[in-house]
Amino acid sequence: MKFSPAEISYLRNSLELPSPIRPDGRSSQQYRPLEATTDFLPTANGSARVRTSDGGECIVGVKARVVKAASESSLINIDVDIAGVRDDSSAVVLLSSTLQTAIQASLPENALKLTDVYSFKLFIDALVISQPSNPFNITSLATYLALKSTRLPKLVSATDDAEAAEIPVFDDDWDQSTFLGQDETRQKWSPPIFTVMAVVGNNLFVDPSVEEEFVSDAGILAGWSADGKVIAPIRIIDLGGKRNGGLKSTLIYKAYSLLQSTAPDVIEALNAIGDQDSLSIF
């Protein structure tokens, strides 16, 4: 997309003001409205679909397979596919590796373990059907919802098969299944989310639109774990804006506090969607 110099300077000046004016009037910590559903793929263990108001759409499916834990390098496999973008492009690689590392680190240790030999392996497939602006936000939110809705069947065979080999057998009743990462107290596990903030001058904006990305100096990517902490990676990414270079360290602090003030609300809204959907089905 091309912009005229007059448009660029109008947008940039508006966003650089001490009290910035975004082109759609949002406050700097306001997201655009989203539409989301979970658990819509009948053949997946968990799934989610998120749509943005500017026409972006992402669907995520989570499937679990029983594997011998010893022969697998990782029990989580994330595959991100962005329509129209090469699979080896930096955006796709960054997205999948960031999500993979963060989800792996936050998942409780024994969440996927079945027996001494066998274990579940999760295949998370994210497909970004269309996304005018940066795909990080939408993919991360859809992955969060999909993992939240993921259910694993209940194991009925013995868990101890260190000596006598035994093939795992599962309960046929899907109502007996448990949510991924659910512990004895039925407390649900929450995966981390990531958000991209656009930097314009001394200001930061969550959920930047295409125009905002275009006039931005850079983007700051940061994660938020469900237990209320800002998590790594906190890094500067390219949002398509032309002005690259260093950022003031104060902006990183600003990003930190911006995330602290917005992320809990985002998590709350996402959980509300997850709860609403699971109620309507079961």
Partner: peptide, 17 residues
């Protein structure tokens, strides 16, 4: 004013009759 609003798409669940 909320930070984010997420809604269920209209009609998405109507099919599950």
């Amino acid at each position: 004013m909320g930070v984010i609003s997420i809604t269920v798409p209209q009609g998405a669940r109507a099919e599950v009759a």
